[in-house]
Design a protein around this nucleic acid. Structure first.
Lengths: 321, 321
DNA sequence: CACGGCTCTCGACAAAAGTCAAACCAGCAA
DNA sequence: TTGCTGGTTTGACTTTTGTCGAGAGCCGTG
């Protein structure tokens, strides 16, 4: 119980304003404070998640293209963010939508797996605060220095913070220099436990990475440009949770994949809702690979990407709708 | 309305406004409609649940219950002490909360009325020291021998001591053997002054007592078990400041009530802030009676009691949230 | 094809909410 | 004691939002 007058007042103001529909000046006179303070308290209430304002994301699953994509790619639900040039930065649009979808998919008591990357952090950053105490957010892969705040543990923690949930971090590097070491580390009880807990998640949130010189894993130093070149020629098609996958969405058989500490793809597939968010157009092939590998059940993309996916799925799928 | 273009528009407007945080005029220009229409759409969006505004329920479950109680019972403020079973003695919890609430409610220059009982003394006992020199603490009712230090004058003095305030004691017994004597004593200038000063208090602190054999007034010898039995059958529902009240919170018309020296209930009702603290679950009916009689504006109870009060107030009050 | 009846839309105004610098206050150090 | 610091609170001001009545568009009917 909050004895702190501030929190008590904030809650009471929020209650009177949002639940009772009083005006700010009425709240002010009732609480015997100035209206300006009420306005301030209400802002705090919104910021801290004491009140939640959520908008339904139905609109974006409701259109025909989303339906066609669901059918063609056998996905659970697809959300398509419009890219009509009105909004300054279309990628923000996708992230805002993704954040809402993400919040909508969370249920009480859920365990949520979160990967890392620019996309994920953007989502975390714009996500509104919520109050989900019995939710646990777990990190899906080991750590790696990344520019800004895109680090795996930061993504996890930031999302946990926003949700007022428990954050479960991964205290291991993403990639090691030898396979032996990686094997040994995976066998460590702490790590083993974290990894085995992943398949018990109810919801996972990740994006996909490219396998070119611009790839996140290259930029963060996990792989050199030339190593990546080799992998690409060996069939690498994308990156999921730090792991290289081929065009069928299977983990590529390579030394790199054996040297990382990350969620097994089979564990990921056991998670009921696998929410994949893709912002950049360049991530088309990786996304197709991830979908092929059954790593995606819920998808948030922009209109252009949706179009491309539909074209790719072939005219056969087109005419179903 | 076949295809409902409106629905789509409402959705879009709600999305841009709530999820993207645009202003109404920006939304209007983006959707190429007037701002007035946007305002109307937004209202519809709220009404139809396309956007959802809710006050958090998990993190602040006790606060939410407190707000509901305030609404249902028309109380000023309700504080609820959590009873999660972890703490050894939950009644201490309530007392700690009550003490801080009490201190919070005191303002400079206040005159404070204090009744007596185990609850009150517990509060006095754990209350932190403060320095409120221009505060006066007055005893609300006559004296009566009580076990430990629960005597009215002791409660008053202890609180005055803690606050560094002036204590104003009552030099009269709580109950006399004849109505005449009580009348005569009440007419005495010293007593009369004390009694008439009560309605000028700014804050009162009391608990409620039960009307069974375990009642404080019985244990202290003011009434015998059998007398209490009779009173209960006559409609006694609780005890406030040594006085018997009925289920409506009115003073019961009985010889006992005419033989006591205590604050008139009407004087108590004139006090702006009437803080009632209840620890024991058995005091449910007395508390309900006191609230019904308008003897309570500020309430401190445990979560269990709160729940019971809310259930009692009826499901109608429940659904406000 | 003109007519009510209907909803949707808009402009203008009034009301409410947001903002910001200044005042205030408690706690602390000198 | 005095002055300082960090945070809250407030009044005055600006911006944003809600509302209302008028008018526009639409449709079935006589």
């Amino acid at each position: 119980m909050a004895i702190r007058p501030a929190e008590q007042l904030i809650h009471k103001a929020a209650w009177l304003y949002y639940a009772h529909g009083l005006r700010q000046d009425q709240v002010a006179s009732q609480l015997k404070i100035s209206r300006a303070s009420v306005a301030m308290y209400l802002r705090k209430a919104r910021e801290t998640g004491i009140v939640n304002i959520s908008t339904s994301t139905q609109l974006f699953t409701d259109d025909v293209m989303a339906r066609k994509l669901e059918d063609a790619l056998k996905l659970d639900t697809v959300w398509i963010a419009p890219e009509n040039g009105h909004v300054a930065d279309p990628s923000i649009d996708i992230a805002v939508l993704a954040a809402s979808v993400f919040l909508e998919l969370i249920k009480k008591g859920d365990r949520i797996g979160v990967a890392w990357g620019r996309t994920i952090y953007t989502i975390a950053d714009i996500m509104s605060y919520a109050d989900l105490q019995d939710v646990t957010v777990v990190q899906l892969c080991g750590n790696l220095g990344a520019p800004y705040s895109y680090r795996p543990d930061q993504c996890t923690m930031e999302i946990a913070r926003r949700l007022n949930a428990k954050g479960l971090n991964f205290y291991a590097p993403l990639v090691l220099t030898t396979e032996e070491l990686a094997r040994g580390l995976r066998a460590e009880p702490v790590i083993r436990e974290q990894l085995s807990g992943i398949s018990q998640c109810d919801l996972a949130l990740y994006s996909v990475g490219t396998v070119d010189a611009d790839s996140h894993v290259v930029k963060c130093g996990a792989l050199t440009t030339s190593e990546m070149d080799v992998l690409r020629r060996a069939g690498a098609a994308g990156v999921i949770a730090g792991q290289i996958i081929d065009a069928q969405g299977k983990a590529l058989d390579c030394s790199y994949n054996r040297r990382i500490i990350s969620a097994e793809l089979s564990s990921l597939r056991k998670i009921e809702k696998r929410l994949v968010v893709v912002q950049e157009d360049s991530k088309f092939e990786p996304l197709v690979a991830a979908i092929a590998g059954g790593l995606c059940t819920h998808l948030v993309v922009g209109a252009r990407m949706a179009r491309r996916l539909l074209d790719h799925a072939g005219p056969a799928a087109e005419k179903i709708a």
